[in-house]
C-alpha cells in the first residue's frame, strides 16, 4: 500500500495534522502566528547551513529553527514591540536563508520544494520522520496539556499552582521548531504557519472546549490534506498550496456556519 505515492502523500499529511492540530490551537490561542512564521522561515536558513556544512538537512533545520524560536521567545517576554520585531525576524530569516542557499557552492537545492513543499515525493523514510516527529510533538502536548492550558490563560494562575509558565512556553517553542522541520517537506517553509493556523481557526466555530478544538483541528488538517491532494491530482496544481487552499475553503465554510 505504501508503494503508491498518493497514499504516502496522504499519510504524510494526516500524520503531520496530528501535531499541527493541537499545536496550531496553541498558536492561535497565544497569538503566535508571526512567531510561527519566523520559525518556519528560519528553516530555510537551516537547510542552507546544513547543505554547506554537510550536516543532515533535518538536523540543520531543527537546530536553526530552534535557535530562532528561542531567540524570539527570549524577546517576547521582555515586552518589546513584538509584531515589528517578529516581522523583521520572519522576513529577515526568509531573505537571509534564500541568500545563503544561493551562496552554497554546488548546491543542488530545489528552491521550489523548499518554499512550497514536495509532498508527492515523500518516501518511506520521510514518512517515518514525519510520523515520528508528529507523534513526539503530540505526546509532548498531551503530557503537558493541563499545564500548557493554564499557562496560556494567565501566568500568575499557573505559578500559583506550581507551574512554571516560562518552562511551558519553552516546551511549545521546541515543539514548534520540531514541527517546522517535519512539515517543510509537506507544505514548504512559506505555508507551514498556514497549516498551523487555518485548521485551528476553522475548528473554533464548531467547538466549546479546548480539547474539542484541538481534535477538530486535527480532523480539519487531515481533511485538507486529502482534499488538497485530490484537487492537486485533478487540476494538476501544486500539492502544498492546494492543501492550504482546501483548508481555507473549510475555514470559509466554518465562518458561514451558524449554530
Amino acid at each position: 500500500m505504501l508503494d503508491d505515492f498518493l497514499i504516502r502523500a496522504a499519510l504524510a499529511g494526516i500524520g503531520l495534522s496530528l501535531a499541527t492540530g493541537p499545536l496550531g490551537a496553541f498558536v492561535v490561542w497565544r497569538r503566535m502566528a508571526y512567531f510561527g512564521d519566523a520559525t518556519a522561515h528560519a528553516a530555510i536558513l537551516g537547510v542552507a547551513l546544513a547543505v554547506a556544512s554537510g550536516l543532515p538537512v533535518f538536523l540543520g533545520t531543527v537546530l536553526v529553527a530552534m535557535g530562532v524560536a528561542l531567540a524570539v521567545s527570549g524577546l517576547s517576554w521582555r515586552g518589546q514591540a513584538m509584531d515589528t520585531v517578529l516581522g523583521v525576524l520572519a522576513h529577515g530569516a526568509l531573505a537571509f536563508g534564500l541568500v545563503a542557499i544561493s551562496l552554497v557552492p554546488g548546491a543542488r537545492v530545489d528552491l521550489q520544494a523548499l518554499l512550497f513543499g514536495d509532498i508527492l515525493t515523500v518516501g518511506r523514510a520521510d514518512l517515518a520522520v514525519i510520523w515520528g516527529g508528529s507523534l513526539a510533538v503530540g505526546l509532548l502536548l498531551v503530557w503537558r496539556w493541563q499545564a500548557l492550558l493554564t499557562a496560556t490563560l494567565n501566568d500568575e494562575l499557573a505559578a500559583s499552582a506550581g507551574i512554571d509558565p516560562a518552562r511551558e512556553r519553552l516546551g511549545l517553542t521546541l515543539a514548534l521548531a520540531l514541527v517546522v522541520a517535519v512539515a517543510i517537506k509537506v507544505v514548504g517553509a512559506l505555508l507551514i504557519a498556514a497549516l498551523l493556523i487555518i485548521p485551528a481557526a476553522a475548528a473554533r466555530r464548531f467547538t466549546t472546549t479546548p480539547e474539542a478544538m484541538a481534535l477538530a483541528a486535527i480532523g480539519c488538517g487531515a481533511l485538507s490534506s486529502i482534499g488538497g491532494l485530490q484537487a492537486s491530482l485533478r487540476f494538476d496544481t501544486p500539492a502544498g498550496p492546494s492543501i492550504i487552499a482546501a483548508a481555507v475553503v473549510i475555514y470559509l465554510i466554518s465562518v458561514a456556519y451558524r449554530r
Partner: peptide, 28 residues
Amino acid sequence: RIGYVPQKLHIDPTLPMTVMRFLSLPHR
C-alpha cells in the same frame, strides 16, 4: 496550596472554554 483569584482574566476569544472545563484547570 494556593488558591489564586486574578484581578482580571482575559480569555482569548479564540479559546473555547466552558465553566466546567475551566474549573478543572490545572487540576482535574
